[in-house]
């Protein structure tokens, strides 16, 4: 199939999807209050935009997202790399990891609220925890699977200290694995943002829940679409950066 044909089919599929969606309330199959038609969305979006609510909610969510992502992935990668380089550290942490790892990020919500209150910090904490584990395991396994022979090469050329091996060989060699983990974390973190905000932290999720309580289902859809679009943009940007950093790969 040619590229144009694939794109044409994708557009067609999307048009059919919108058509069915538009038709369902119009034909009275479902009440418009339960499923707002797509034609109602631009108006709802403009109202949210004009009141400034949309922009502020988006900025707040994005800020929490970026903060949680950076904190979680930085700590996760750092500890994962350290654990990957030291069998003693891995053994030391083995049971702690086994205990904490299976706890879903959202199970931390009670403690997040207890420690930080209904506050962006709570959202950052919950986002950070989910991202932490993904980055930790990605970094650990990426470092573990670095070719021993490349580490011997570093030795042979006089890079015998741990920090030299780290910067000359281990980090660049582990970069593809770490970045693949970070990409998974991007998506995971986005889910965590929304979840944390549904519990009351200001942002897109909170605004969406307010609209839901007021039965403003068109506004709910606006925020769902906003989340999808933001995630799409972030993921596309990350893939572009990833491809640039790893351009040495075939």
């Amino acid at each position: 199939m040619t590229r144009t044909r694939a794109t044409a089919l994708a557009v067609l599929g999307f048009a059919i999807f919108l058509g069915i969606w538009e038709a369902a309330p119009a034909l009275g199959l479902v009440p418009a209050a339960i499923l707002p038609p797509p034609s109602a969305l631009p108006g709802a979006f403009m109202r949210e935009l004009d009141s400034g609510v949309w922009f502020e909610a988006m900025l707040t969510s994005l800020r929490n997202y970026v903060a949680g992502l950076f904190l979680g992935s930085f700590l996760g990668v750092a500890l994962g790399v350290a654990t990957g380089m030291s069998h003693a550290l891995e053994a030391l942490l083995a049971w702690v990891v086994r205990l904490l790892r299976p706890i879903p990020g959202l199970a931390w919500v009670p403690f997040a609220i207890l420690w930080f209150g209904i506050d962006p910090t709570a959202a950052i904490f919950i986002i950070g925890i989910g991202v932490f584990w993904i980055s930790y395991f990605a970094a650990l396994s990426a470092v573990r699977t670095v070719d021993r022979e490349l580490i011997e090469l570093a030795d042979a050329f006089g890079f015998r200290r741990a920090h030299q091996k780290l910067t000359k060989v281990i980090l660049p060699a582990a970069a593809p694995g770490i970045m693949a983990g970070l990409r998974t974390a991007l998506g995971q973190a986005w889910m965590a943002v929304v979840a944390a905000e549904i519990f009351g932290v200001p942002g897109l999720g909170q605004r969406m829940m307010q609209a839901s309580n007021l039965l403003a289902s068109d506004v709910v859809v606006i925020y769902m679409a906003t989340m999808a679009a933001l995630y799409g943009i972030i993921d596309t940007a990350f893939v572009a950066i990833q491809a640039r950093l790893l351009r040495w790969k075939r």
Partner: peptide, 18 residues
């Protein structure tokens, strides 16, 4: 000298990212 000896391995062992 910092490195009086230098090694050439059977596999060229180049760093693929460089």
């Amino acid at each position: 000298k910092p490195l009086p000896v230098a090694m050439v391995f059977q596999d060229a062992r180049l760093l693929p990212w460089r």
